[in-house]
Simulated assay, not measured.
Amino acid sequence: MPKVQYDSHQLDDLVLQMMETELGGEQVYRAALACAVNPDLKKEWEEYLQETLTHQNVVRSLCDALGLDPEQQSHTRQVVRHIGESLVKAMELARQGGNPQAAQLVACECVVHAETKDHANWELLGKVAQAATGDVGQALQAAHQAVEKDEDHHLYHTKGWCRELAIEALGMPAVLPPPEEVKNVESAIGASRAEQQRESML
Rank of each mutant, 00 (worst) to 15 (best):
V4L: 09
Y6E: 03
D7A: 06
D7I: 05
H9K: 11
Q10T: 03
Q10R: 13
L11S: 06
D12K: 02
M18W: 03
M19V: 10
L23Q: 13
L23V: 09
G24P: 10
E26C: 10
Q27L: 11
Q27F: 10
V28F: 10
Y29I: 12
L33V: 13
A34E: 15
C35Y: 10
A36M: 07
V37K: 08
K42Y: 07
K42M: 09
K43Q: 10
K43H: 08
K43I: 00
K43R: 11
E44G: 02
W45M: 14
W45F: 14
E46P: 01
E46L: 14
E47V: 04
Y48R: 11
Y48W: 09
L49E: 10
Q50K: 10
T52Q: 10
T54A: 07
N57M: 01
N57V: 03
V58W: 04
V58N: 02
V59Y: 00
R60S: 00
R60D: 04
R60I: 02
L62Y: 02
L62W: 00
C63F: 01
D64S: 11
D64Y: 05
D64A: 12
L68N: 06
Q72C: 05
Q73E: 15
H75G: 05
H75I: 09
H75V: 08
T76K: 07
R81C: 06
H82K: 15
G84E: 15
G84Y: 06
S86R: 06
S86L: 05
K89T: 10
A90E: 13
A90N: 00
A90V: 04
L93M: 02
A94P: 00
Q96F: 10
G97P: 02
G97R: 06
N99L: 08
Q101W: 09
A103K: 08
L105N: 14
V106E: 14
A107Y: 05
E109R: 08
V111R: 03
V112D: 06
H113K: 09
E115Q: 15
T116L: 08
D118L: 07
D118C: 07
H119Q: 09
W122S: 01
E123S: 03
E123G: 06
L124C: 01
L124W: 02
K127A: 07
Q130N: 07
Q130E: 15
Q130W: 05
A131S: 15
T133A: 12
G134E: 12
D135L: 04
V136K: 09
Q138S: 13
A139S: 11
A139F: 02
Q141D: 13
Q141Y: 03
A142L: 09
A142P: 03
A142W: 07
A142T: 12
A143D: 04
H144W: 13
H144P: 01
V147K: 03
K149E: 13
D152I: 01
H153Y: 10
L155A: 05
H157Y: 01
H157K: 01
T158V: 14
K159A: 08
G160D: 01
G160T: 08
R163H: 12
R163T: 12
I167G: 13
M172R: 11
M172P: 00
P173Y: 06
V175L: 06
L176S: 01
P177I: 00
P178Q: 03
V182N: 00
V182G: 05
N184F: 00
N184V: 02
V185H: 01
A188E: 15
G190A: 10
G190F: 09
S192L: 13
A194R: 11
E195S: 13
Q197P: 01
Q197C: 13
R198F: 10
R198L: 09
E199I: 11
S200V: 14
M201I: 12
M201W: 15
